[in-house]
């Protein structure tokens, strides 16, 4: 099977393609019953995924939810234990190299070549894709500029800051003009400024029509970048939708956070606010009241004679969706 042919198939309108199952070709990524087991442990438990061209798709879940295992299967570096998987219309088992030629991968931990300089990292990586030296050089200059590392081009990788290394990894993943960009927790461990700078770069890519698939356990990241996401827990999908849909379905408009003293038993207060709202979550350090009118609920709490140390009314987030679906918090 040759690459140019499949590219052509994908670029023609779906209606004219002589393929029976059109969902298979319409989707850049298509998985049914995708399963990954390591011995007794099931990391990914029969998930169905379809990611369309140009979409920004996210896996949201805590550590150990099976996100990275899923990403490695999509990246064709981990054979599925069960289920079907088609990437760009091809089978990872048979066409691994051809698929990987069209993917860009940003792994969870930086795998930059520490023995090479910033620029050489991009040069040699492009060569792995079979690009000519001249083509790689031109692309390298363009990408260094894109991730604002031109003035560090000759430096070794080691002394770069965490944010710079991450940006370099992203530049590296773009060297082959990928059709799909896979980002495994792209901003974990970065300071807020570096995260925003990275999100800015990713947003530009999204606008250019690059298909983004990312995992994250940060709800703000998912909200910023994803058109559609799945909430993943224990190898399965707990819910699916756009960030707004998920919040509308599984949470309320606003959340009231109540903090009592450090030695107080929050369960006691949970009983005392009963009836004020439909849903109350008890966390070790605070109480969450799900409501459509935060200020009104706050007033009601005081009317009951309760005196919290602090109150906070905020918008519902994906964190709340996750708490609702799994009973656990995303970041522990």
């Amino acid at each position: 099977m040759s690459v140019p042919e499949s590219r052509r198939q994908l670029s023609v309108p779906v209606a004219t393609v002589e393929v029976v199952d059109d969902s298979l070709d319409a989707a850049f990524i298509h998985a049914r019953g995708l399963t990954k087991r390591f011995g007794e442990f099931t990391a990914v438990d029969g998930i169905d995924v379809d990611v369309a061209r140009g979409e920004a798709f996210g896996f949201l879940g805590p550590n150990g939810a099976g996100k990275s295992s899923t990403m490695r299967m999509i990246g064709c570096v981990s054979p599925p234990t069960e289920g079907t998987l088609r990437i760009l219309g091809m089978d990872p088992g048979a066409d691994g190299p051809a698929i990987r030629a069209r993917l860009g991968v940003v792994p969870q931990q930086d795998t930059l070549d520490t023995e090479l300089s910033v620029r050489e990292n991009l040069l040699i990586y492009g060569r792995y894709f079979g690009m000519s030296r001249a083509a790689v050089r031109a692309k390298t200059d363009e990408l260094l500029d894109f991730v604002q590392l031109t003035d560090r081009a000759k430096d070794k990788v080691e002394p770069l800051s965490g944010g710079m290394k991450r940006r370099l990894t992203i530049a590296r993943s773009l060297i082959n003009d990928p059709d799909i960009l896979l980002l495994d927790e792209p901003t974990t461990g970065l300071d807020p400024q570096a995260r925003h700078s990275l999100w800015d770069r990713l947003f530009r890519l999204k606008q250019r029509g690059v298909t983004l698939v990312l995992t994250t356990h940060y709800m703000d990241e998912a909200e910023q970048l994803c058109d559609r996401l799945v909430v993943m827990d224990k190898g399965r999908f707990a819910a699916e939708g756009s960030p707004r849909e998920l919040i509308a379905t599984y949470s309320t408009r606003e959340v009231l956070e109540l903090r009592f003293g450090p030695d107080e038993d929050n369960n006691v207060y949970a009983d005392k606010v009963e009836g004020l709202v439909d849903r109350v979550e008890v966390l070790p350090d605070r109480l969450l009241l799900y409501t459509d009118d935060g200020d009104g609920t706050t007033a009601a709490v005081y009317q009951r004679g309760l005196l919290p140390v602090s109150t906070l009314v905020r918008r519902s987030t994906l964190e709340d969706v996750f708490l609702r679906l799994t009973g656990r918090t995303l970041v522990d």
Partner: peptide, 14 residues
């Protein structure tokens, strides 16, 4: 340590 090969294998290299 360097995970050099992990990066290389996400390209067409086997």
């Amino acid at each position: 340590y360097a995970k050099t090969y992990d990066a290389i294998l996400s390209t067409p290299m086997s």
